[in-house]
């Protein structure tokens, strides 16, 4: 952590490891993104519509409400986890 305030080089293999972790995290979150919108809201909605949330069929609810709530959560989760990954590799932008 000490040198994060100064200009420094990071070895190529550490950079690659950082990037791989980022891509893995992205892949997981984008899978959830697709699952709640294209999955729950469109492709599997007939199955989900057999259940209901309050007075709304579940698949319909996902398409008009649920997917949007999950989208918001996904971005904040990514923001927090990415920050942790960046600090681990000492390439965060806390000090510029």
């Amino acid at each position: 952590m000490a040198e994060s305030g100064e200009d420094h080089d990071i070895p190529e293999n550490r950079f690659k490891a950082y990037w791989r972790e980022n891509l893995t995290l992205m892949a997981v979150l984008l899978a959830i993104w697709a699952l709640v919108s294209f999955g729950a809201g469109i492709l599997f909605r007939d199955v989900l519509d057999q259940f209901s949330i309050g007075g709304a069929p579940l698949g319909f609810w996902f398409a008009q409400q649920g997917a949007i709530y999950v989208f918001v959560i996904l971005i904040f989760v990514y923001s927090a986890l990415m920050h942790r990954i960046e600090r681990k590799y000492d390439i965060d932008d806390d000090q510029g």
């Binding site: 420094h8 965060d92 932008d93 510029g96």
Partner: peptide, 9 residues
């Protein structure tokens, strides 16, 4: 790389 001070060597 988010940091403006770190570069890939």
């Amino acid at each position: 790389i988010p940091s403006t001070r770190a570069h890939v060597g």
